[in-house]
Structure formats: structure tokens, C-alpha cells
Design a protein around this nucleic acid. Structure first.
Lengths: 334, 334
DNA sequence: ATCCAGCCGTGAATCGTTTCAAACTGTAAT
DNA sequence: ATTACAGTTTGAAACGATTCACGGCTGGAT
């Protein structure tokens, strides 16, 4: 059915070993032979069978990536960064979406092991889970994306979420806001918890400022909208004068929720800042202030660390940590 | 290094053939033996090597999917639908992003052939391209997603974009709008051209209505914003009273563009309708009317067709065609 | 002449799983 | 006792690319 090296070898009147050499080390073969084999390859339409190559080589040319939520543009960007970096290495990225569900995460990791992927990039549903630890110990190279495994020993790419939270709230305070609300959740997600911690620290220096924490079940536009409506319905006295959302989807939702009632204006009555700086943030009708994370660079760096781990078996474990960046737009404008 | 069936066989004191049967046809093996082998598998931590299985079976457990733009939420949903359907079959989806570039598309298709994927789901950058035809003839099952290959012979999943265009513009006409603008581009993209054709047909029955066609280079929020600003700057007399955008990203952009100048109000001065009904459409500050495409169902159906093609080699070629659905929200409200 | 070193090319062994004809078991029918 | 038969299990062949020890050849040095 399919054309194999054997067919090519016969057509070019050489041995299979030579065909393989043409494919993998053309410099070891006489130019005339290379040409002849190449011609046969083209003529027969030969395509290398990766399964066989993998079987012999013991590993594949692909990388597994499991993200928390593929519908979130932030993770879409991370995936893109990883994909681009991997492509330069001739590798493909297999994308899995755990939807924050440990069982789905486990299913993907199992699949990736069967596929003998070169390594796995993981945004864990739960950093404490022993499953992650076990995976790390199981011999298949692992890089933690957007987090760091307590206890170390596993390379990771992270952004300083505490710092990001500080930036956001410090900015709100600078704008003269004093009654801050933090909307996010669930707090079991490390990113959510860290950003809150950052908010607390920023507030530490301003005694008269207050922080209200509103915990939601998920970080979606709809959840944000509900929260926004609730805030808009309050009396002016009970209402915060600034809201820091754990991500931009929430912030967009809050924007809508407050707009529906038409009473509360952003930014005059309520300053609003999100997190991630997704493409849509600048496109919102009130352009959204946000804390930018270099999503694409994160993905690329994760692949980079994986490549390092592959090259130098068990060498130094690197941790890359990016700094978040405040992006000020109209939603917190003066 | 890695545990193989041979190791398991030795540990369970059976032959490798029996281990394989336990893995693939447990019913053909005596229950006691199954238990013993299973125990050995668990104890040794055996993980099936997919490369070897593939090599023997001649095909893999994965499906390739190449989309035009993974940053577009519509395609993200399609991918998700495909992924979910494939997962039920124990298959994985390899996602490639062509970014509307034929060369990137080609690179992914080549990769997928090397990986001996079970089949390819493709949103072609160019339906006319002979490369697509060649792929279809090369023995690897192909399903066209969101399109149909002229000349037939390839299963496909499509949505009737002409019908969608008609729905959108007919709705605008019903609202009493007469000076319609269509914003989209490039027209070489089939979807863009078909939606325009639909718009023209809807207008055919209303002689006094006019259609202005504004062609852009890409379907992004930023392109839409520029177009929106341009429209907002016109005098009321030169301005359309309704805009139909080739997708929701554009429509969101137009919404912003017009809002910036503050002169033109949606929907009073300008009715606005988009296409795709992405999640954000209902979340826009002026909730966006749109034409819904069942993105997830499209992805699932594509996998379905692929499975059929795999089961019944060369049986009837099916074409699934979904009907688009008008979703009316405030942006075209009375 | 003889030897050596480089270069090329060879082909059998190998990876781990699946498949399948054949062998083996125990039971039932003759 | 013999045969039939279904239910199990076996073990070797096969999938296709890669690897590597080895042999043939050429040309230059001795």
C-alpha cells in the first residue's frame, strides 16, 4: 500500500541503509547517489513512516501540552508560542485541554505517554497532586507552565502573579481609589490566589483602603457579568470604587454587568482592571486596563526548557520567571 | 529502559500474544489469566508503545486538524467539537494552525502524513489548490471542514454561508434598513464571498435598497475598528444605516470604531450584525446580533465523517450541511 | 608491490506490538 | 477408546526505519 524505504532502495538500486543515510545524513553519501535516491523518493512519493522511526529511535518528534482552558485566549497564545518554537525544531505540539478537571488531565497525560512524546508541558489542575510528581519521576521530561512545582526538581516557566496583583492594585490606589474589590475564583487555582496575595500586599501601605474579596466558581465572562450586576445594584455607599479581576474575561463580564443597569459608569464611578491583556481587552468599548503576561513567550520558553532537558539529561533544572507588566487604558483612566 | 509486553509476559508467565489479547480482546482470554496479566501490567507500570502498535497496524490513533486561524474563537470551538468526538473513540486530535498561509498548511499536512494520522480534517486556505486534490488522492482520508471541494469525491462539513448572508440582510431589511454595507475580506476566502452572495440575494427583492461593499485585508477586530471609524466620520447622508460584517471580530471592531467618535449610535443610527455568534458577541456592550454556526457540531460531524470513511473504505461520500441560524440581539434591535 | 586510510555502501539485527495458524487442553458425544 | 470440538494459549512473522560492524574500492605513501 504505502511506499517504504525498501521500495525506494530497489528503485534507486541501492540498499535500504543508504536510503536511510540519504534521509538522515546526506553528507555521508556520495552526491551522485543522493541525487539518484532523491529522484526515486520523489518519483514514488515516499513519505517516511514516523511510527517506525520512533519505534527504533525510542522517542517521537512531538511534545504534549495540557492547558487549563483552551477557550481562554491567554492559553491559546501560550499554545501558539509553544507551537512556533517547536516547529523550528521540526516538532509538533499535541494540544490537550483539561478544562480544570483532574480526570481529563490524567487521560491526556496517559495518551501522551502511549505516544511516547518527547516531553510534556503542563499547566497543572492542581500543583499539589501527587500525579504530577509521579509523572515527573516517570522518566518523561516535564515542564510546568505558568506555575512552579513545590519541592523543585522540575523545570518551570512562571510569571510572578503576586507582583502582577501588586501592580494592578497599586495602580488603582494611585488613581485615588480606596475601596477595592477583588473578583476571582476558585482560590484553589494558584494564579487566582497569588494575584489576591499581591493585592493584599499593595494595600498594606495604605491603611485607609479596604479590600473586598468576591469569590466565583469560574473565570468566565458570564460569571463576571453576574458579579458586575450585583455590584451595580448596590447603593453608591456600599459599592467599591475599583475592581480588580483575576482575568480579562471576568473584567469584560463586569463591564457588561454594570452597563446593563446603566447607573455605574466605568471608569468614573468604578475603575476596572483585568489580567492577561488578551487581545480583546484593548478592543472593549471601554478599553480595559490589564496586567500583561507574555503569553507567547511563555509557550516558547517552555519548549526551550524542554529541549534543554532533552539535550542534557538531568543537568541543571532551570526556572524561567517572567515579570508582568501594567497596561493602563481607559477603564482606570483619570 | 521501558517496560514492554515481553516483560509483562514473563512476569505473568504467559506469552506475549496473550498479553496483547488481554490488552485488545480481553473476552478471548480466560478471566483468571486476564487478572494475572493485569496485575503484572499494574505492578510493572507498563504503558503501551503506540509507535509499535501503529507500525503494525499501519495507522495511528490520531487525527490531524488544520484550521485557518486558531485565534478565532469559532475555530477554537470547532477544534473542541472535534476533540471531544475523537476522544470518545480513543483518538487524539493534532491541531495545526495554517494562519491562512498555504506554505504553513503544506507543512502541517506533510507532518501529518509522516505521522500516519488516521485522517485529516482540513479548512483549506484555497479550495482550488491542487495540493488539496492531491492529498485527497494520496490515500489518506480527508474531510473538508467548512467548505466543499469542487468536483466532489471528498466528504465535507459545511454551513450554508449564502443562506447565512441572506438571513442577516433579510433581517436588516425587515427592520426597515435600506442602505446596507457589507464589510469583509479578502473575497478570495470562500466564506466571505458566499456571505456576500447571500446578501445580494436578499437585496434582490427590495429594489430601493442599496449595498455598499467594503473589502478588507483580514477579519480582525482591528480591521473592523478602522472600517467603523471611517463610517462614523461620514456625513449622515453618506452613511449606511446598517452594516453586515463577515464575522463577529469585525463587528466588534466596527462597534468600537463607531463608539470612539460618539456620533453614531448602535442600533439607532446604525444597525450592526456579525457572523459566527462567538461567545463574546452576546457579551459585547451592545449585544451583537449574529448568524450562528454550530461550531462544535461542525467539528464533531467532521470526525464522524472521517470515522465513516475509515470504516467503509470508499463507500458513499457524505456531505453534511448545517443551516445557519439568525440570532437577534440589541445591535439590530428596534 | 604493498600497505594504509578514507570513503561509500551493504545488509542483518533491532525496536515493541499485533496477528494468526497451529498446538494444546479438557469435555462431551459416539 | 476414539473422535469432535470449543475454548485457550502459543510463538514466530511482520510492520518500516535506523544503526553499525564490516567489506570493497581508490589513490597516495612507502
Amino acid at each position: 500500500m504505502s511506499v517504504s524505504v525498501k521500495d525506494v532502495a530497489a528503485a534507486a538500486a541501492v540498499s535500504v541503509g543508504t536510503v536511510s543515510n540519504v534521509l538522515n545524513r546526506p553528507d555521508k553519501v556520495a552526491p551522485a547517489t543522493v541525487a539518484r535516491v532523491q529522484a526515486a523518493i520523489d518519483r514514488l512519493g515516499f513519505v517516511r513512516n514516523d511510527a517506525a522511526r520512533q519505534l527504533r529511535a525510542g522517542r517521537s518528534r512531538s511534545i504534549g501540552l495540557v492547558v487549563l482552558d483552551s477557550a481562554n485566549p491567554f492559553f491559546a497564545e501560550v499554545a501558539r508560542g509553544a507551537e512556533e518554537r517547536a516547529a523550528r525544531e521540526g516538532m509538533a505540539v499535541l494540544l490537550g485541554n483539561s478544562d480544570q478537571t483532574p480526570s481529563r488531565e490524567r487521560a491526556y497525560l496517559e495518551l501522551f505517554r502511549e505516544q511516547r512524546v518527547n516531553g510534556v508541558l503542563l499547566t497543572p489542575t492542581d500543583l499539589e497532586a501527587s500525579a504530577v510528581r509521579r509523572l515527573a519521576d516517570s522518566g518523561i521530561p516535564l515542564v510546568i507552565v505558568d506555575g512552579e512545582l513545590p519541592g523543585g526538581g522540575v523545570p518551570s516557566v512562571a510569571v510572578d502573579d503576586v507582583q502582577g496583583g501588586m501592580l494592578a492594585v497599586a495602580h488603582l490606589l494611585e488613581q485615588g481609589r480606596r475601596r477595592i474589590a477583588y473578583i476571582g475564583g476558585p482560590h484553589s487555582i494558584r494564579q487566582v490566589a497569588d494575584r489576591l496575595e499581591g493585592a493584599r500586599r499593595a494595600l498594606a501601605g495604605v491603611p485607609e483602603a479596604t479590600l473586598e474579596v468576591i469569590e466565583l466558581d469560574a473565570l468566565t465572562v458570564l460569571h463576571g457579568r453576574d458579579a458586575g450586576e450585583e455590584i451595580a445594584r448596590r447603593s453608591a455607599a456600599d459599592r467599591p470604587d475599583a475592581v480588580f479581576c483575576a482575568n480579562d474575561l471576568l473584567a469584560v463580564g463586569v463591564l457588561q454587568g454594570t452597563a446593563i443597569l446603566g447607573e455605574v459608569r466605568v471608569p468614573d464611578d468604578l475603575a476596572l482592571i483585568g489580567y492577561d491583556d488578551i487581545d480583546f481587552a484593548q478592543s472593549a468599548v471601554v478599553p480595559l486596563s490589564s496586567v500583561r503576561q507574555p503569553a507567547r513567550a511563555i509557550g516558547a520558553a517552555a519548549v526551550e526548557l524542554l529541549l534543554e532537558a532533552l539535550d542534557s539529561e538531568g543537568a541543571a533544572i532551570r526556572h524561567v520567571r517572567f515579570q508582568p507588566e501594567l497596561v493602563v487604558r481607559a477603564s482606570t483612566g483619570p
